[in-house]
């Protein structure tokens, strides 16, 4: 009897705790996708403000993704709509979160996963916080207690902000990063942490369930990439039956000049490098024959506005 009583009291306690956490999650979740509303990683989360079912391609990954791929350039040349959901030092726990968020309002046909993040060990803490945040967003947004206001109590969640660069982050400057031997062939296979493999499996399953094609893409980087990593992703892509494109092995198609196209000694690409990668990517996307040109579609009028702003901004920056 004592055990039954205790069992019930423990159960009641946890039920009460769950209710409190749910309530607090409603309170703490940002009511809009802007910094002043407490949203984190606003550039990547700009996708939440995009009109429903307008994004064809999403790009996931770390800083390699958002410095290498310019969605507005793709739109200008092909009319395909892409969004880069990459964030700095992204761990796969957050990659998964971004993927799920993106699919809440969008139905992309292609999901591009920049591969550098696959090697970044997911900390157990982040994995657990991410898992808890799936159910209780208070764990992710708890620090918003500093900026809570009345609107957080009665307001509804409505994401309105759009990013004219569609997740791309412009980088200028040149800092040479020549390293001729960085892709020296080897039979070695770089290790991918077990937890990371688990996340990749989940990402792949999610894409399959939602009818999206997962593509692994390794953008050029002399600092982050090498042949053993290539081998690891090749193996992973074969196991998961995914497409894999390693731009580090395609110098003819993506002619990166390491004396001009990087701003931090080969770690990331600058704007001129990003244009080269994007030019390759838009041709690649065309070849899939999965996407349609939206340039003359009136539903995408706002994309033209964004393109104008993007071009003006880039022209200003290039001056």
């Amino acid at each position: 009897m004592v055990y039954v009583k205790r069992g019930i009291s423990v159960l009641t306690f946890f039920m009460g705790l769950t209710i409190f956490l749910v309530m607090l999650s409603f309170l703490f979740v940002p009511k809009n996708n802007m910094t002043e509303f407490g949203m984190e990683e606003v550039t990547a989360n700009g996708i939440l403000g995009e009109k429903e079912n307008t994004i064809d391609v999403i790009v996931l990954g770390d800083s390699e993704s958002y410095t290498s791929i310019s969605p507005m350039h793709i739109f200008k040349e092909t009319g395909y709509t892409a969004y880069v959901c990459g964030t700095s030092g992204q761990q796969l726990s957050y990659t998964k979160t971004m993927l799920h968020r993106a699919f809440e309002k969008q139905s992309p046909k292609i999901v591009i996963m920049e591969t550098n993040a696959i090697f970044r060990k997911v900390s157990t803490v982040k994995a657990i916080v991410a898992k808890l945040s799936d159910f209780f967003s208070v764990f992710q947004y708890h620090n918003r207690w500093k900026s809570l206001n009345l609107n957080d109590i009665k307001g509804k969640v409505k994401f309105t902000w759009v990013n004219d660069f569609k997740g791309y982050q412009y980088r200028d400057g040149v800092s040479s990063g020549m390293d001729k031997d960085y892709m020296k062939p080897t039979d070695e296979v770089a290790g991918i942490p077990l937890l990371n493999l688990n996340y990749i499996d989940k990402i792949k399953s999610f894409c399959d369930e939602n009818g999206a094609q997962l593509v692994f893409l390794s953008t050029p980087s002399t600092k982050n990439w090498n042949y053993s990593r290539h081998n690891a992703i090749r193996q992973l892509a074969d196991e998961l039956s995914c497409e894999y494109v390693d731009l580090n092995l395609l110098p003819a198609e993506v002619p990166i000049n390491w004396n001009r196209d990087t701003y931090d000694k080969g770690d990331h690409l600058n704007y001129s490098g990003a244009v080269k990668v994007t030019n390759f990517l838009l041709k690649y996307l065309g070849k899939t024959q999965l996407l349609t040109d939206h340039r003359s579609d009136p539903a995408y009028e706002k994309w033209h506005d964004s393109l104008k702003k993007y071009e003006a901004d880039i022209a200003e920056k290039l001056k």
Binding site: G16, F20, Q140
Partner: peptide, 28 residues
């Protein structure tokens, strides 16, 4: 009484959840 006990426990747990220095912007 149980209600008061639980109130104390919830306050302690939720104080850690909300005001704890963890997550984005904090290094363990």
């Amino acid at each position: 009484p149980i209600a008061l006990r639980y109130a104390v426990y919830y306050t302690l747990i939720l104080a850690i959840v909300i005001f704890g220095a963890y997550g984005a912007g904090y290094v363990p």
